[in-house]
Design a protein around this nucleic acid. Structure first.
Lengths: 287, 287
DNA sequence: CCATATCATAGACGGTATCTATGATAGACC
DNA sequence: GGTCTATCATAGATACCGTCTATGATATGG
């Protein structure tokens, strides 16, 4: 059966007049395109190109085939556009990193009622979201961007450091910056799925500070509430905030996380990017 | 990118109103089709079907998409037909088992000059031909049909046994049938790539007959020539014949080989089957 | 005759379409 | 209400094949 990718190779060769540049346009290597054309010719039982060393040109059979190939490609595009422009609620499934501030998530948790769209939020840790992306269970993920992961199309949104969260009543609440040593006899709250948990632990222990852990939670809102209640302090990303909680930088702790969108391979980033849901995500990120 | 196979799944579901029978028509399992439709829906960002337990029906988006899907499928078929009906020499690459009689092969070695076709014969052993089929280097193979190999579409042509080939001057040349024991002190010629070589050897040794091997060749025509020259006798498929060579059955040796065409997966058996080349193969087989 | 540009071939790798096996759900029937 | 049957969905393993890198073949130009 003739597959669509073969038509694209074929049309690219026609448009560029040579295999190498056609391959480049198709984002494949030249040999890949070469075997692709050969396969197409085998399936049709006839050569589609005359290969001379300096150029390739269509055979008569190739010329006839090209007419249909172009029509098919055009029709595929029309088909996608027809459904994209279609009325009827579209569901955008968005994975959200669990350590992203609830206040921020709340800003795009629901879309306006007049939009033909609904959001489905899936909370998870970094690894969970990547798994879901790979399996196609979500359309995009709002998560940490790692330079070494180039499997997915991405859109950077913001970056933030980590700092201390203290009760407003804390004796150090007014400081510009706090050193780890100043917290020697403090009570701390552990955010168990924090992505820099190991680094945080290391930061304190190498400075001889071994605080008592009054609570361990995977829920950042609970951690904030406990801080506000005066139970202890914690380290968390800068954008987390709550009434009664003061944020102060931690001296020498300069980790930064880059947050943005990763798009599932099944999704068209341009199309998905135009949804009101992702527009709301961008607005919330910029605020 | 939406692939063609997904459209076929989609159209099959519409035509049958249920996934299971659609899968059957597409020659895939029901789960395969299920994930295929799911993938298509993810790519388009919208469900294409309403699933109730008793039936599936198109959503509005699905109905719009269906129009384009049908048009695309039709255009694919037109494209193939356009090239198939095209003038210009078409090359049919036919693998031929080396142990098939030269006289038979000669009958389809060339096609009439007025046909828009040329043949390219590739000789090889059974294994070679299967390799070439798998790699798409030949369009079809005239070879042994094994029941356990269902990788390729097939067309049975004939079957033949194996028997002795004797010089016309041989003392047993007039017999109706010859037993292995009667050949005890005969000289034999070994056809080295015979597919039943092991069985032949076994047949003689278990009967206490250990003849002298005067020649070992991979060329059946040479083997026949040596037999005609009176050098010795050999065992070969029944359809091998030459002047001065008499064929007599070998008692108790009832192996049979079934010969036919295997079609490469890239080829459309129906289309390829209509070529004058394969018509000539059929005529030669029937003669 | 070497340098350059072209397409073809070979062997290895990885992704994914596919499989079998199983689950989930709901209507039909007694 | 249970059980049967028909439906689609999910999970994990498998195998094919599209893709890669590396190399070859072939012609053209300086």
């Amino acid at each position: 059966m003739i597959d669509r990718y073969l038509l694209r190779y074929f049309l690219a060769v026609i448009d560029h007049g040579n295999f190498s540049r056609a391959a480049e346009q198709c984002n494949v290597s030249q040999p890949t395109l070469s075997v692709g054309i050969a396969k197409l010719e085998r399936m049709l039982g006839r050569p589609l190109f005359h290969r001379t060393n300096r150029r390739v040109e269509l055979t008569p059979a190739g010329a006839h085939f090209a007419v249909h190939a172009r029509r098919i490609e055009a029709e595929f595009n029309l088909a996608e556009a027809a459904v994209a422009g279609q009325r009827g609620r579209r569901t955008v499934r968005l994975g959200v990193l669990a350590t992203i501030s609830t206040a921020l998530v709340a800003q795009f948790a629901s879309v306006p009622g007049d939009a033909d769209e609904q959001v489905e939020l899936v909370e998870g840790r970094e690894r969970d979201l990547l798994d879901r992306l790979a399996r196609g269970r979500i359309d995009a993920a709002l998560t940490i961007l790692r330079p070494d992961n180039d499997r997915y199309a991405r859109e950077a949104l913001w970056q933030e450091g980590y700092g201390l969260a203290l009760p407003a009543s804390h004796r150090l609440a007014g400081e510009e910056m706090i050193a780890a040593e100043a917290l020697a006899d403090n009570v701390m709250i552990v955010r168990r799925h924090c992505e820099v948990l190991a680094e945080t632990s290391h930061h304190f222990t190498t400075r001889g500070v071994r605080p008592f852990f009054a609570a361990r939670t995977t829920n950042d809102d609970r951690a904030l509430a406990l801080v506000a209640a005066g139970m202890g302090v914690t380290v968390m990303p800068d954008r987390h905030a709550a009434p009664g909680v003061v944020r102060v930088p931690l001296a020498g702790f300069d980790h930064v996380r880059r947050i943005g969108l990763l798009f599932a391979t099944h999704a068209d980033p341009a199309d998905l990017g135009r949804t009101v849901t992702l527009a709301a995500v961008r607005r919330a990120a910029a605020a």
